[in-house]
Design a protein around this nucleic acid. Sequence first.
DNA 1: ACGTTCTAGTTAGGTCACCTTACCAAATCG
DNA 2: CGATTTGGTAAGGTGACCTAACTAGAACGT
Lengths: 367, 367
Amino acid sequence: MLPQAVLREATDRKLFDEVVGRERVTRAELATATGFSKPTVSESVRRLTEGGLLAATGPQETGRRGRVGTFYELGTAAGWVLAVEVDQSGVQAWSADLAGRVLHRHDRPPGGAGDTGALAEALRATVSAALRKPPAGPLRAVAVSMANPVHPDTREVIALPRSPFPEGLLSPGDILADLVTAPVLVDNDVNLAALAEQRFGDATSFAYLYVGAGLGLGLYLGGTLVRGAHGLAGEVGYLPGAGWRTLATELAAAGLGRSDAPSNDVAAVLRALDAGTPAVLMALVAAVARAVASVTAVVDPEVVLLGGPLGTHPALLDPVRAAVATLSPSPTRLDHGTLGALAPLHGATHLALDHAVAAAIKHDVPG
Amino acid sequence: MLPQAVLREATDRKLFDEVVGRERVTRAELATATGFSKPTVSESVRRLTEGGLLAATGPQETGRRGRVGTFYELGTAAGWVLAVEVDQSGVQAWSADLAGRVLHRHDRPPGGAGDTGALAEALRATVSAALRKPPAGPLRAVAVSMANPVHPDTREVIALPRSPFPEGLLSPGDILADLVTAPVLVDNDVNLAALAEQRFGDATSFAYLYVGAGLGLGLYLGGTLVRGAHGLAGEVGYLPGAGWRTLATELAAAGLGRSDAPSNDVAAVLRALDAGTPAVLMALVAAVARAVASVTAVVDPEVVLLGGPLGTHPALLDPVRAAVATLSPSPTRLDHGTLGALAPLHGATHLALDHAVAAAIKHDVPG
DNA sequence: ACGTTCTAGTTAGGTCACCTTACCAAATCG
DNA sequence: CGATTTGGTAAGGTGACCTAACTAGAACGT
């Protein structure tokens, strides 16, 4: 590969993102918006259209002085990506175009609860359904969101004690190998939720704390997700609690987030929170505040967002803020996430998109 | 600035580092070692020699077939950097060349203990002394290591409750403004220690836990130091302890690391550790293990190194390993740091070097 | 009506950093 | 003393960027 390719790729990527962000643009607008010269923009747009990522869509509306320009937008042959979420409540998938617009949704309730084989089958069935309604163009990437941690290099699913999945590892890449030729990216659901919430807001250092059937943390620092050397970054359930046990163990001892019947527990805890039961609230607030304070002390992010079925409960925010303030001198902002239960799917879409666009730009160098 | 400059700078930097790493090299060796073509290497070396960073130092020794090449090495006019450490035990400074070789050392005992004005005066005096023994070439950068956290953008020193410095902020940039024209970089001593230990080993994700008169953590992830949005990353003294207090508070309550007389305390604790007093050991191990487990749970680094006067005590390592293992499922390696008390100075040297070389390469484009 | 003005886009030509290929220079080996 | 081997230069090409000057075409103004 030529050394100058890095410049070309950066230019193409920036222009592509600009086009996607503005829906329809002329090359002149692109030049002023990005700072590139007009000839450079024309060259780059030519590459992108020949590669199918962009397409000319007729003339600029007239009524303004000067020559009418040509609008460019996302090409219909640009293709699409597939984002999938696998968890205890089933499998959910989104087909999206390269602008991130969701085109189709596919849901599937859980097969046999807690059965890995059934889950794998549900994954295959959902992806098959999505492939039966293919948008225009090639499928460029598949991203799968899972509740387990994922190894940062191999992207294998990692088994943990008290993991929400039973024994037996689920490897989406293997499961989908014969269905799909596009690359299959796998990542942790909370990491992906963090990615989504980060893109939605725009803090550069950022933590997303999931509170539901267990605790999970997604960390976004310095422009990338922190996955950890062994894929275990953000496993805040293993933080030391008040005693010499992990936070997760203490929560379970308090009757919260038991890993053997998590969804029922979440419903019960939600009812308790709605009813204002002080014991439940206090136990939960203590655990969440410990987690937030720990994250703050270690990486000091700009913002910490609470997410997940319990994390978004309105009764939680103020007490946690108060508790954290007694410990931490950092003015870190604490708030609710805004994307709700769909955050991981949004994140998976972003992950797939990012990979797809980068790969598409890297490969076509039409002359 | 030309867009191609990024390529040129990367090339120059890589070649410069290669030359420094091998002491003396011919251009042919550089070409094969770096993968650049021979003409590219010659061009780059020409730029670097004209900029003064490199210098030809006579012919390759003969005895081998083929033409004798010209050796290049660090130029005498490349200049130098100054690394300074300011803490309660006084001020210490190193002059180093751009290869990181320490040329002169300057020490100064503390003026009035805990007196900011005296400390500032000691800083000025130490730098003046260093300037009176200037190595060849220009002073390109000064890096100051301090025990306080430092704001990541403004690089102002941040005041914290229980900080080892008294009221009144020490701004090395201002203090040295009339002595020195080179840029003055300031950073936290523990961050710099992490930088140094990281360079010495070569883990890509890395935490350095300082245990002395207080706890501090330096984090090195994804190729850079993590300073936090407010400069408070690694302030693990504010981690929640076993009770609803910070780790630092609990340690102080146990008679360890009291911030009002820290150095005496450290000596006392060291004596207790040597004597094998179980209460002291257990309290310290508990606190350190909590910190390590917290870091592991949040960012899952490849390695955690213990440093500082207490952290390097041999009695600490195994109990901490055992305690961490009961909490954390991550196979993170735990070890002692290898640079001892000099780690922050090493780190400051690296910081200054990095800045100096980058700036020197950026600016001269002789043509 | 018709030249002026304004905007979109192309053409021409230059720069810069990289590359390959071919050559020259100088030392040892057989 | 020629062959070989190695360091370094010369010549020429490519690709990605730039500026400046041009053409294309619509609306405005008197």
